[in-house]
Amino acid sequence: MTDMGQLIEPVIPGLRRYANALVRDPAEADDLVQDCLERAVARWGQRRADGDTRSWLYAILHNLAVNRWRTLRRRGVMAPLEAVDPGSLSVAPAQEHGLARADVLRALDRLPDEYRGVILLVTVEALSYAEAARVLGVPLGTVMSRLSRGRARLASALADDAPVRSHLRRVK
């Protein structure tokens, strides 16, 4: 346990952050992380001894999230993004400087899942490209091309939002 605890526990805050970014519902996200940890504990003996615990944990979590989306979408209960209460995202109201936090998360939500995962793992979770490739189960080249396209799409989504925001500000 001590060995396992020392390797797993430092990763848990990052796992929560990743889960929250993916599913955008704090309770649902913690359910996923709990599920992930239970699996990790159960399969601790089966992981590759030379493998990296951090990417192994993110991979378990990512796969659980993907399965969860599939189920939700099959049932058609995925909440439209507009319906997500911004207050539930623990995000500050729109700031005048830089990118507003709510805006960037909203823009991220509009990206296809394959881009979101890569961007979050590399940018927020600070995984190496090789680790991200392991988590997502894709070749390194795919990680690079998704990262490139994902960042471009996120940037253009944010650029599209900007005029709407200033327009709203003028109106009020």
Binding site: P13, R16, R17, N20, V104, L108, L120, A155
Partner: peptide
């Protein structure tokens, strides 16, 4: 955009862990 994402998501990782985790 990377900075904004990190900033927006940082509070989650700073929260104390819930008991079930």
């Amino acid at each position: 955009q990377g900075e904004a994402l990190r900033e927006a998501l940082a509070p989650v990782a700073d929260q104390p862990l819930p008991a079930e985790l």
